[in-house]
Simulated scan of single mutants.
Amino acid sequence: MLNLDHKDNALLEAVDGRTMLAGSNRMEILLFSLGTSETFGINVFKVREVSKTPFITKAPNMPNGVEGLISLRGNVIPVLSLAKILGVARPGAGLGGSMMVTEYSKRTLGFLVEEVDRIIRVEWDKVRTPDNVASGVNGYITAITELADGKLVSILDVETILANTFGEAIVGNIAPISGGHEVNVFFVDDSAVARRKITEVLDKLGVRHKHAQNGMEAWTRLEGMASHAQQMGRHVAEEIDLIMVDAEMPEMDGYVLTRNIKNDSRFEGIPVVMHSSLSSDANRAMGKRVGVDSYVAKFDADVLAETLRPLLQRARAV
């Protein structure tokens, strides 16, 4: 078994006792295959360990693509076949030789793959949002990057995989904010599922909102709003009451985006909330380092709403 907390130190930077690249606008991707010619990747910080495919206990009434359950150090976790979920499983093919144990939004899962390759480091500005992601395998891809040999790597959208397998999180009753129609939120997230759920929460809070799909797009639009407000002799805080950012995004990660916002005096007084599936203490600590006002793990609609509520009410009171 390979424990990914003990990778080659030459590939890692230590922050608060853990390996972190966040804030440097770089990420590490674990490459793997699903028995096709394509190469796939997943952010290393979502992966706890890699092992050979273990014995999996079948269970009744499992969603399509869920092979069964395993016991891992006293915890029972579901195991998913990524090839089946992405629709690329070959007829008669086995489960694959390797299992990645992932931790995502405080949830532990096993992902079966054909073979795990290696870990690479890439700059976020070399990670692009893919075109034409409406259906098929592309519907599960959140970003694309290119290896030195020209081979493309498709980075998986784990949020979409989980939503399509287990169902989307339900957004229940959320009380609207008094005067919410005057409140403006700008948020950015590269996952279509996440954007949809965030929109549901903001709609129930009764606030107005705009969004971007990656960090660079968000920063470009925010700079444009700030410049326009400046030309009009206004403060951009009159147009934006709160900014919400994802942590890992194509072209610019949420840590660099937050640092840009906090280092630009035009955005002074506008709170920044980081909303991320990377929910470890180390990620929260990095969020604090770059200046986020609050850090919320995906996806609990009530927790998100109750985190935003006082910040938005305070903004309206100013």
Results as ranks from 00 to 15, higher is better:
V88D: 10
V116R: 05
V79F: 00
S81K: 04
K46Q: 08
T108L: 10
P60K: 02
I70V: 15
V50A: 15
E114W: 02
V50E: 13
G65W: 05
G96S: 03
I77W: 02
V50W: 07
T53K: 07
K46M: 04
P54C: 07
F45W: 06
V113Y: 00
K52W: 10
S37V: 02
K106N: 15
K46R: 11
G94Y: 02
R90L: 14
E114P: 09
T108F: 02
G110S: 11
P60S: 06
G97I: 07
F40W: 02
S51G: 13
F111G: 07
I120S: 08
L112I: 04
F40G: 04
L72A: 14
T39L: 14
L109T: 01
T53V: 08
V79Q: 05
M62V: 10
V76K: 13
K52N: 14
V66P: 04
G87L: 04
P54N: 08
G96T: 06
V47P: 03
A83N: 08
I120C: 10
L72D: 15
L109C: 11
E38K: 09
R73Q: 14
T108Y: 08
P60Y: 03
T108I: 09
R118F: 05
G110R: 06
I119C: 12
R48W: 05
L86N: 03
S98M: 06
V44R: 05
N64G: 10
G94F: 00
K84R: 14
V116W: 01
K84H: 11
P54L: 07
G41S: 09
G94H: 07
I70F: 12
E115H: 14
A83P: 12
L112V: 06
M100Q: 03
T36H: 10
E114I: 06
V79I: 08
F55Q: 15
K84T: 04
S51V: 03
P54V: 02
V79K: 06
T108H: 08
I119V: 15
G92H: 01
N75R: 12
K52F: 13
E103F: 00
T102R: 03
I56K: 00
I85V: 13
G94A: 09
M62L: 15
V66D: 02
S105G: 14
A93C: 08
P78L: 07
R118I: 04
G92R: 00
Y104I: 06
I70T: 14
R48A: 11
T53Q: 11
E67Q: 12
V116Q: 06
G96E: 03
S98K: 00
P91G: 11
A59R: 13
V101N: 06
M100R: 06
A83S: 14
N64L: 09
L95C: 11
I77S: 14
L69N: 10
G87S: 13
L69F: 10
V50G: 11
R118Y: 03
N75H: 10
V66W: 05
L82E: 04
N75I: 01
Y104P: 01
S105Y: 07
G65F: 05
P60L: 00
P60H: 01
S81V: 03
F40Q: 03
L80E: 00
L80G: 03
L80P: 08
S71H: 10
P63M: 06
G68F: 05
L80C: 09
L86Q: 02
V79H: 01
L82R: 05
I77Y: 09
I42C: 02
N64I: 03
A89P: 14
